[in-house]
Amino acid sequence: MSETKTLNLVQAVTDGLNVAMEADDDVILLGEDIGKFGGVFRATAGLHERFGEERVIDTPLNEAGIIGSAIGMALYGLRPVPEIQFSDFIYPGFDHIVNELAKYRYRSGGQFPCPVTIRTPVGGGIRGGHYHSQSPEAYFIHTPGLKVVCPSSPRDAKGLLVSSIRNDDPVLFLEPKPIYRKAIGEVPVGDFEVPLGEARVVREGSDVTLIAWGAMVPLCEEAASRAASDGIECTILDPRTLWPLDIEAIVSSVEHTGRCVIVHEAPKTCGFGSEISALVQERCFLSLEAPITRVTGYDVPFPYTLEHAYLPSVARVLDAVETAVHF
């Protein structure tokens, strides 16, 4: 077994950036306060000193400029990794992501791939209010040409980030900031990749399949532990790569359990849970013992004071699990 070290999730991100930059001079970082300051969440701490200002670039506070510049750098032949300080601020760069980054390969007939990995923290529960808490994955999954990744453990954060950067497609790398420091685990030392497009079985059980990503994974783990004490065994599947989704892993699990509960922070309507639900229905209809259920944020703007009322809770997940089992 390879050597490991104990890291939290944000330290694992830093480690992944270090590894990718060390191995490939074309990998450069750009973003607001990511250089000398080391990033608002310290994800790039120490990289400016190590790799210099030409590879760890402090930019003006302009998200369209950051993402647009990254596209130009990728067209030149670099492998830029822009950071958007909070995903809530990604929208000024939305046109560049949806209309340019996602389409460059396609509209050029494959001549101009755009290997840009956009790192951005997502998720609520940190007293961040409307503009520091959102989970925008569905917008990007809905856009052909983008890959969307969201790790839930330090090991996956490092391995998936290195894979994303080395991938020739654009990647939205969504970092669950509520567990940046809560998620702690063993991470392989040195060069290490986790392949994109492969789900992780977090826990195995025969009664219900829970599908969750990011900060919802530890929440589901707690719910699954409590359900087990009542004799209900849950499988927890973390897709890790939200798109392209590991559909086979989901189908295999739901065919076995016959029940599927999807948990995410983003609002319910047209959230990614809707798509997963449709896919499961299309492929597992005859195996289903109960309706597919979604436990999600509500269809309201993300609130400040009532954020814990908004976010899925262990109790809401347990309720969905019990309803599915007793249907």
Partner: peptide
């Protein structure tokens, strides 16, 4: 044939990369 000025930002990024290299 997209946004009327998005390509100017790409040109800036390309030129920044050319300056680095």
């Amino acid at each position: 044939d997209g946004n009327i000025a998005s390509h100017t930002v790409h040109a800036s990024g390309f030129g920044q990369a050319a300056q680095i290299r």
